[in-house]
Nucleic acid binder design. Structure first.
Length: 444
RNA sequence: GGUUCCAUCGUCUAACGGUUAGGACACCAGGUUUUCAUCCUGGAAAUCGGGGUUCGAUUCCCCGUGGAAUCACCA
């Protein structure tokens, strides 16, 4: 019978979850779920000064929105002190650890050091293969500030042992601290978990992305208008691939496909362009209703967005226009700023020379607009397709530019805009006729 | 500096030692299109250097070079 796989989510609540944290959590999650394993959530808050419950709540919110659920926890190391104290006492009694009569930071105080056996540790990393490090370099490292105040290396080892963690999957930055943790596991008499060190995510400068170096948080992604499905998919691709040309995955598909063997070992650099493209793909997959909900929710918190999202024409905009151009919802705000949707709310102010297509005469343009007016006046259906049907034949006959440019321009007053049929359907028949009338008058 | 890790198009990456070194993003050109966007087609673009091993190295080994991580009473 195979041992049940148990992994852990161990963020320290000293900041929001950033891209590096999330990717590590994701890989832990995928590994556990694809092996019928378990996920334990644990806040590593032994640094009391930098930890706080607000950060915990924010981290939990991110996990929940991303759909990275866990089976046990959340535990807090700050509430498990007795276990560390216990381990500490056992180690001191067995002379595996000792009280050192000096503290560099606090004169007069002592610290607890681990009696390093000074040997070479070799472990088999699931991503990188065999790694050997001589622990002599670490010396008798500190494992606690006092008998009741343990630090990271001890708490991790004690917790992993107590929680039955079988696989420790974390960033490559932990490789060199792995041997010292193995030393502690051995000293405590536990079984050594399997390690897997993931490639770091780096920025344009090739440096590790971290809290203090360019790593953006989940909430920031969300505020930029990326959706969980897009973020998950993109992050999975940072350091993992399925071995073929597929690039788009839902979370469940990732669970099916994921394996640590296919995690590669050179650092991956974060790119907004690729994220945009992956996110857009997932946006396109969304059912219409869900997409609308996302847009409205997103716009609600922006002043100019809230104003337009309530407009009667706006739902038409979402489905017919936004979907094909938006990679992330913040782009809608940019479009609003640039006035791209002014035509929805306000009738355009048009200059006569702009409405005329190339060298065509004003008389001819007027004729075309009048034709459009007359035809659409009698239209019974009002969809982009039906409007197109009404005008297309005429436009092909007369010259598409000659007919369609002034038509679109009277409706939008913009040299660049979505196609006239979509615009017309969004505006509604009455408004379209009104704007056409204005255009016709201008030409007279 | 010590230790450890890493090295394929600009970026993410594929290639049981034998491929015209493949895909995606971005970029460029053409097509569709009244404009923008979408979409379609095409293009440019890579194995860090030097030695081995081998009939044959992107692939295995060594050296070099370059980059990164880590060396806390942070996690």
């Amino acid at each position: 019978m195979k041992e049940k796989i148990i992994v852990r989510f161990p963020p320290s609540p000293t900041g929001s979850l950033h891209i590096g944290n999330i990717r590590t959590l994701l890989f832990n999650y995928l590994f556990a779920r694809s092996n019928d394993g378990e996920v334990v959530m644990r806040f590593e808050d032994t640094d009391r000064e930098r930890s706080n419950s607000t950060h915990e709540a924010i981290a939990l919110e991110a996990l929940s929105e991303l759909g990275l659920d866990f089976d046990k926890g959340p535990f807090r190391q700050s509430e498990r002190t007795h276990m560390y104290v216990d381990a500490l006492q056992r180690m001191i009694k067995k002379d595996i650890a000792y009280v050192a009569e000096e503290s560099e930071e606090d004169a007069g105080k002592h610290v607890i050091r681990f009696r390093n056996p000074n040997k070479k540790i070799t472990f088999n990393d699931l991503v990188r293969g065999e790694i050997t490090i001589d622990t002599t370099d670490f010396g008798d490292f500190v494992i606690a500030r006092s008998e009741t105040n343990p630090i990271y290396h001890l708490t991790v080892v004690v917790d992993d042992l107590e929680m039955g963690i079988t696989h420790v999957i974390r960033g490559e930055d932990h490789i060199t601290s792995t041997p010292r943790q193995i030393l502690l596991v051995e000293a405590l008499g536990g079984s050594i978990p399997t390690y897997a060190h993931l490639p770091l995510i780096i920025g344009n400068d090739k440096k590790k992305l971290g809290k203090r170096h360019g790593a953006i948080t989940y909430q920031e992604f969300r505020d930029l208008g990326y959706i969980p499905a897009g973020i998950i998919n993109y992050l999975a691709l940072l350091g993992w691939n399925p071995g073929d040309d597929r690039e788009f995955f839902t979370k469940n598909e990732l669970v099916k496909e994921f394996s640590l063997e296919r995690v590669n070992n050179s650092p991956a650099s974060f790119s907004y362009e690729k994220l945009d493209s992956v996110n857009k793909h997932h946006l396109l997959q969304l059912p219409s209703e869900e997409y609308k909900e996302y847009v409205h929710t997103f716009l609600a918190v922006h002043p100019e967005g809230a104003k337009i999202s309530g407009h009667p024409h706006f739902d038409g905009i979402i489905e017919n226009i936004l979907r094909e151009r938006v990679h992330k919802f913040s782009e809608i705000i940019t479009m609003l700023h640039d006035g791209e949707f002014n035509w929805i709310i306000n009738q355009p102010i048009i200059k006569k020379e702009d409405i005329i297509w190339k060298e065509t005469s004003a008389k001819t343009i007027e004729k075309h607009l009048k034709y459009a007016y007359k035809t659409l006046e009698n239209a019974s259906k009002w969809t982009p397709e039906s409007i197109r049907e009404n005008l297309w034949h005429y436009a092909e006959e007369q010259g598409k530019g000659e007919v369609l440019w002034p038509f679109r321009f009277s409706l939008t007053g913009q040299k660049q805009s979505p196609d006239p049929f979509t615009v017309a359907s969004v505006l509604g028949k009455e408004e379209v006729l009104d704007r056409l009338q204005n255009g016709i008058q201008l030409l007279q």
